[in-house]
Amino acid sequence: MSSAGLIVRALGRVGDAVDASVRAPAQVPRTLRTVLAHRAYRGLALLVGSAVLVLYLTANGDLAFSVSDRWSGTPFAQLAESGPFDTRAPYLFEPLLVLHPGAHIAVFLSPMNILLGAVVAGLVGCNIAVAAYTAKHAVACRRPGYSGILAAAPAFLLGFACCVPTFLLAIGSGVAATLTPVLVPLRPIFYPLTLVLLGAVLVWTVRRSRAMTSAM
């Protein structure tokens, strides 16, 4: 085949891939309904999603825990003067209220932070549930099936855009000085990039799931 013919064929394949990409997201709602109709997978999605939400809020400081009773004597609730959309950093909003349910815990409530965390948590939970559902059917079909779960892992790590400085401090200031010029300017896109990646993984996992269940 000539070079021109190869190029034409390659472009045609890209076109086919575009069609498949456009069709694939439409399959997600129905597959999710099927998967989440099973109590076991629904429970798994809720459990994983809740854990991710707690992790997200802890990483950005909205949930604080202390071994010592450092909040003893603190009023149960304190109000802020800031508004719900006042930002501290990209995708990190000021809390409106702090609660001290005990001497060892503080909960800084920001509706926007909770919403952003819930979106990431929901996507991760759905990814894990669909991946587990696919894996179970893959085992039945004797095909590898756990890669969907692993695929979600790196994507959701990017969601901690607000926590970049904390992350950099944790890994040590020497390494941080090398990474900071790259990471800090990327902060504004970390969160939306996470949503795109998690969404893409979900679509891909749904396609695999449908392919496996239709092959059975």
Partner: peptide, 12 residues
């Protein structure tokens, strides 16, 4: 491939 698919691929 059809012409439409080729154009779609080029546009993408």
């Amino acid at each position: 491939p059809g012409r439409r698919q080729v154009l779609k691929g080029a546009a993408a």
